[in-house]
Amino acid sequence: MTKLLLPPEPAAQPTSTSRRSFLRYSGATMAVGGLLLAGCDDDSENGNNRIDVGSGDPGILNYAYALEQLEAAFYAAVKGGAYYTGAPASEKQIFDDLALHEQIHADFFKTALGNGAIKALEPDFSTINFGDKNSVLTAAQAFEDLGVAAYNGAGRFITAPGYLAVAGKIVSVEARHAALIRDLRSYNSFVDNDVVDLFTPSGNASTPGVGNGTGLERSKRPAEVVETANQFLKEGSKISANSFK
């Protein structure tokens, strides 16, 4: 895999403060080759029969592509289900938009990755009841919140500013989705402590910055995200992100 891409710098080996490792630890970005020349184009599976997203920036883009595929497949299934068919127009409008957005995201990554894209993943939504509103909204919230946490936790692994910018363009849309789905389930739950480290003023609430908590989203690292995502992917379509720890 990633035959055309330089191997990732091994995380454990450097033993001297070479200029190279110093740059890495000081966070300086490295030059990145053309995206279309790089990536994971043979869908190699690792020991756990998982599809690894690869390494470097193409790996992160494939990681995003995998999650967007999952979301796109989910909303396509929602639109084919009994809940959607019987839903009021207001809710249909929301799911129509969500389905379009996620399919656009998935198609975008597929095009951008070109030959470096991982294969089309087969979802497993057997635990979701597409005839039941609560089941659909619960799953939608899980996917959207996961997407936000995943993009935020992956930003640190991106080396090319242009790719970080694209991730930023998408993650805020995922957050808009997540907040709306949460509000549909429980009004005013657009931020809550499960996804945001809520801030509680310790004194006068009108004095800024004094209290407990941070108001920060609870970002998640790829290793945690893939475990959740894999619950909704069939054997042979489960993913790993072994280069991003």
């Binding site: 993009y151 935020n152 640190r156 805020s172 657009f190 108001g215 989203e217």
Partner: peptide, 18 residues
């Protein structure tokens, strides 16, 4: 610092949505 800023950014987007 980047991750903290990203974790603010998405919360602002949740606010906007609401």
């Amino acid at each position: 610092v980047l991750e903290a800023a990203l974790n603010i950014h998405s919360v602002e987007a949740r606010h906007s949505s609401h």
